[in-house]
Amino acid sequence: MPSLNDRDMAFLRNLQRGQTVTGLVTEIATFGVTFVDIGGFTAIDRSATSSPIPSPNSSPSPRRRRQLSG
């Protein structure tokens, strides 16, 4: 397992429950969760309340920007 650098550790230390973050949807699973890349880390969105954020380069790609709040 690769070790975390200082930037990654600072990112993880500063995350707080309920914080809103923005990321890219990487997978929508059939069992009701969405996997979201939040800057090199994978978050799991299992709420129906995440809201799509329009991307400035909108395309028909399944990789969509999402804003997640915990």
Score class of each variant (00 low, 15 high):
residue 23 G to L: 03
residue 55 S to W: 08
residue 54 P to F: 06
residue 23 G to P: 02
residue 61 S to Q: 06
residue 30 T to V: 12
residue 17 R to H: 11
residue 42 T to K: 06
residue 22 T to D: 07
residue 35 F to S: 10
residue 16 Q to Y: 03
residue 44 I to G: 06
residue 62 P to L: 04
residue 25 V to T: 11
residue 52 P to G: 05
residue 17 R to Q: 14
residue 50 S to Q: 08
residue 35 F to W: 05
residue 29 A to E: 10
residue 58 S to A: 13
residue 42 T to S: 06
residue 51 S to W: 05
residue 43 A to C: 07
residue 19 Q to G: 05
residue 57 N to V: 13
residue 55 S to H: 11
residue 55 S to G: 12
residue 52 P to V: 04
residue 20 T to E: 12
residue 52 P to I: 02
residue 45 D to C: 14
residue 42 T to E: 09
residue 36 V to K: 03
residue 28 I to V: 15
residue 16 Q to E: 14
residue 54 P to T: 13
residue 21 V to C: 03
residue 21 V to E: 04
residue 26 T to Q: 11
residue 57 N to Q: 14
residue 34 T to L: 04
residue 57 N to P: 06
residue 56 P to I: 12
residue 34 T to W: 01
residue 43 A to T: 07
residue 51 S to E: 13
residue 54 P to G: 05
residue 15 L to T: 09
residue 44 I to V: 15
residue 19 Q to I: 07
residue 14 N to P: 04
residue 56 P to W: 02
residue 21 V to F: 02
residue 24 L to Q: 09
residue 17 R to L: 15
residue 27 E to P: 03
residue 51 S to Q: 10
residue 43 A to G: 03
residue 36 V to R: 07
residue 60 P to D: 13
residue 52 P to Q: 00
residue 33 V to Q: 10
residue 57 N to T: 15
residue 45 D to F: 00
residue 27 E to D: 14
residue 38 I to F: 05
residue 24 L to V: 13
residue 22 T to Y: 00
residue 42 T to I: 15
residue 45 D to Y: 01
residue 13 R to H: 10
residue 42 T to R: 07
residue 29 A to Y: 04
residue 23 G to D: 04
residue 13 R to Y: 01
residue 43 A to H: 02
